[in-house]
Structure formats: C-alpha cells, structure tokens
Simulated assay, not measured.
Amino acid sequence: MIYNTLITSLNNRILTVTINRENKLNALNKETLDELHKCLNEAFSNEAVGGIIITGAGKKSFVAGADIAEFQGLNAEEASNLSKSGHTKVFDLIENGPKPVIAAVNGFALGGGLELAMACHIRIVSDNARFGLPEVTLGLIPGYGGTQRLPQLVGKGKAIEMILSAQMIDANEAFRIGLANQVVTLEELLPKSAELLTVVLSRAPLAVAAAIRAINAGYTDGINGFQTEIEQFGGCFTTNDIKEGVSAFLEKRVPKFCGN
C-alpha cells in the first residue's frame, strides 16, 4: 500500500515503518495517525509480517509530538474525541497487538512521539535521542496515554517529575530509569532493532502473542493478570508449536515453529 506520510519496507518478515514528515520533525497529524492505523492493522493480519519496527525519517527526530496546528479551535468535546480516537486507532492498537513492535528512536521523542514509543513493546534508542512530555507548556496534558504508560515504565515519582516540569531527558537517563531498553549509535539503531526482533521472531509466535496479552493484563483495570497468565499458559497447550518446542528440546535440536 502507498502512503503519503509513511514509508514501509518488508525484509525477513520485519516490516519497517518510517514516519516520513521530516520537514515537520515527523509530527503526528491526523493523516499520519490514520495511515498508521491502516498500516498496523494490515501488518497484524499479514502472515508475511512477523514483527514491526517504527522509526522516523532523518537523523533529528523520531516524532516531535502531535501537529499542534490541528489543535486550534477545538472545543472540549472535540479534543476528547481526538484523544479517544488516537488511543483506539494507534496507541492501544500497538500495545495490544499480537506481534512484537519495536520503536527505533532516532532523535526527539516528544509529546505524542514519546507516547508512540511507549506504546511499542520495546524501545531501542540512538545516543542522540531526547525524551519529554512538554504538554503543560501549552496548557495541556499528555493525551495519548502518556500519563498512564510513563508511570508504568519509570515509576510514579519520576513520571510526575517529567510531566509537570516538561523537561527533556537524554538517552542515557532514559536507559537508567527504564524508559529505553538499549542505547546504541545512530548508525547501529536500525540494525540492532532488526537483530533483536529477529531473535524474538525465532520464538514461538503464538507464545509471543500470549505473553504480550498476559503482561498487558496486569496493567488493565478490572482484569486479574495472574488469571490471564494461567489461561494463556493453558491455551499454549492447544497449539502445535508446544509439541514442536518440547520435541526439539528433548531431541536437542533447534525448534521450527509454524505459528499454529
């Protein structure tokens, strides 16, 4: 599919999605969010895609927030609908997706950009990356999950500090507090992301999807994460992959998972 704001490439079952608005520091406008929704839905249902890497065009910015120009003139109801739509169509879609998604963060990840990175399952970041939620400097608060996902990743105290001060942190600090999984050079960013995703794709895909569901359940109001784990654990025993995995272990060979 051809997009106006995205560039996609598929290689060895890894779909790389590049947000391509470099002259706007890859800011998320409505068209970009709509195209991300279409692209991700297609990727999650496409058997040729095992996992996804999301990155930004150029060296300066992953995503430098939402397109603030689109906020002008909104009333409270329209703003709430905008936030709800983004949650449902993109950010929650990524977090709850059945396939692993890595954010390859090159440069600025601010506002909606940091929220996009946090919705991904893993964050590999370049050493020039900068992170922040500056919404309070505009008279706003984060509206795409930032007030919920940041505390989950870095703890309540640090999250409140970052959100209320609106100050940026660098890549090393992001790694120290648990916001980033790995810090690499800009040149290593996509290769390292692909390398890690390749390792994940060598595992049983239905088990990977079950693990994502079980982990997310522990952070979902009204759902018992331990009970979800029990159910997902049991469900794995209905698959052919567990038979292959156990047989391969006992036979001391590398398993060949088929995802069924």
Score class of each variant (00 low, 15 high):
187 E>C: 00
84 K>M: 02
47 E>I: 12
205 P>M: 06
248 A>V: 09
196 L>G: 12
206 L>T: 13
220 T>M: 04
178 G>P: 02
190 L>M: 11
210 A>R: 13
31 E>G: 03
97 G>F: 11
97 G>N: 11
30 K>T: 00
108 F>R: 15
116 L>C: 03
98 P>I: 01
166 A>D: 01
194 A>Q: 13
76 A>K: 15
111 G>Y: 12
237 F>T: 01
62 F>L: 13
208 V>T: 15
31 E>D: 14
13 R>W: 03
163 I>W: 04
225 G>H: 03
56 G>R: 02
26 N>S: 11
1 M>Y: 03
33 L>H: 05
25 L>Y: 13
77 E>F: 09
29 N>M: 07
19 I>G: 15
180 A>R: 08
129 A>P: 10
59 K>L: 12
64 A>C: 15
120 C>F: 06
5 T>H: 09
131 F>P: 13
245 G>E: 05
130 R>L: 14
54 I>F: 03
40 L>Q: 07
43 A>Y: 03
208 V>R: 05
217 A>Q: 07
259 G>D: 10
227 Q>F: 04
89 K>D: 07
2 I>M: 08
113 G>Y: 10
218 G>L: 08
90 V>H: 00
90 V>K: 02
137 T>F: 13
47 E>Q: 14
142 P>C: 09
192 K>H: 08
41 N>S: 04
199 V>N: 08
17 V>Q: 05
71 F>N: 00
247 S>G: 08
35 E>D: 03
96 N>R: 13
233 F>E: 12
153 L>D: 02
137 T>Q: 09
34 D>C: 09
20 N>Q: 06
98 P>Q: 09
22 E>L: 09
101 V>I: 11
257 F>S: 05
161 E>A: 12
58 G>K: 00
106 N>C: 12
127 D>M: 02
255 P>D: 07
185 T>Q: 02
71 F>W: 07
36 L>K: 06
134 P>S: 14
157 G>R: 11
126 S>R: 10
217 A>F: 04
66 A>W: 03
75 N>Y: 06
35 E>S: 02
48 A>W: 06
3 Y>S: 00
149 R>P: 08
228 T>D: 10
78 E>A: 14
143 G>Q: 13
185 T>H: 10
174 A>M: 12
159 A>D: 08
41 N>T: 05
172 N>M: 11
170 D>Q: 09
41 N>F: 04
172 N>V: 01
67 D>G: 07
104 A>Y: 03
19 I>N: 13
221 D>P: 15
193 S>H: 01
36 L>A: 00
223 I>G: 10
90 V>R: 10
202 S>I: 01
133 L>K: 00
114 L>E: 06
30 K>R: 06
191 P>K: 08
32 T>Y: 07
103 A>L: 10
231 E>V: 00
222 G>V: 10
209 A>P: 03
69 A>V: 03
199 V>S: 12
145 G>V: 09
39 C>Q: 00
259 G>Y: 05
11 N>I: 09
60 K>S: 11
55 T>C: 11
149 R>T: 13
59 K>T: 12
152 Q>R: 15
110 L>S: 14
53 I>D: 14
195 E>R: 15
119 A>P: 05
103 A>M: 09
